[in-house]
Simulated scan of single mutants.
Amino acid sequence: MANGSRQAAWEFFGAELKRRREEAGFTQVELGTRVFVSGGYIGQFEQAIRKPQGDVAQRIDETLQTDGIFERLCTQLIDDHRYAAYFARAAELETRATSICEFAPALVPGLLQVPAYARAVTLAMNPFALDEFIDEKVAGRVERGRIFKEVTRPLYWVILHENVLRVPVGGPAVMAEQLEHIVRLTRARTVVVQVLPYSAGGYAVMTGDLRLMEFDDAPPTAYTEAVYSGSLLDDPAVVKRAQRAYDLLRADALPREASLALIESAAEGFRRCASST
């Protein structure tokens, strides 16, 4: 389903939820209490600010006695199978974010991946998958990168651990193409990139993948990811701790010009290696 169609389904979910809630005589707070979320969450579902989750939709159906309509909307219209279930909500939110700050300890973030790099990563994680599956996942990652071509693109600040520049994902030619793409985006002032060098020590290893997102019409959110799992965090105290962790990483990272020089050097090394084979 195209982004526009998913957004329309999301908005339909919100409008239908508001209609059914009001018919049942519940306030947002009252419905939220019954389905174990805040009234503010219900409001954000109704305004299509947050993507509805299947378990919440199921409880809404039970409370409003709507014969499973909201759960079906989530499953059939809103869920995007190009992304892992644990990441789908974060993918939707990044299209609405005004600011994204990201730390990548091992791989180039999906928003910056070129097709060849995305394919290499997807194949490595899914060695027995069919071509159709691989193609769908790669297409999803490449489409996410188009956010930088939008007039309303978010401010994007990424910290790459030096690991990201050194591990030859997909081979030297793919790495050269990927790093050169990051250089182009940086020189075009589309993104801000810093590199956290090996000399920064072990703090980054303990932090793991981290993304912070800010919005015009919703509270900030943090997203963390591990192997085959991810967590979207919106508790204000937890988000504040995540922001402090990111600030510490940024303090230890190389300045922007030094970071760019290191990325360019790594790209040149991979390019030379690719041309000699």
Rank of each mutant, 00 (worst) to 15 (best):
P115T: 11
P105K: 05
L107N: 11
I182E: 06
L185D: 07
E180Q: 13
I182G: 10
R187N: 11
M125K: 08
I182C: 14
L160Q: 07
V167C: 04
V158I: 11
T190G: 08
Y156K: 06
Q113C: 04
L185W: 00
Y117R: 00
V142R: 05
A106K: 06
E132H: 09
A120P: 04
L130G: 11
H161A: 15
P172D: 10
I134G: 04
R184P: 01
Y117Q: 02
A118V: 03
Q113R: 03
Y156V: 14
P154H: 08
V142C: 11
L155K: 11
L155D: 13
Q178W: 00
A106F: 12
V167P: 01
V169H: 01
P127F: 13
R141W: 03
A106D: 10
L165V: 10
V121S: 01
A106V: 13
A173W: 00
E177V: 02
W157A: 10
P168K: 04
H181Y: 02
I182M: 14
R184D: 13
M175D: 03
D131H: 07
M175I: 08
R189K: 14
I147H: 02
G140L: 10
G170E: 01
M125Y: 10
R146M: 15
R187Y: 00
L112Q: 04
R119K: 12
V158K: 07
Y156T: 12
E150T: 11
T186G: 11
E177F: 00
R144Q: 12
V169A: 02
K149F: 04
M175C: 08
P154W: 02
V121H: 01
H161F: 07
P105R: 03
T190I: 15
V174P: 03
R153Q: 11
L155P: 05
P109G: 12
I147S: 06
M175F: 04
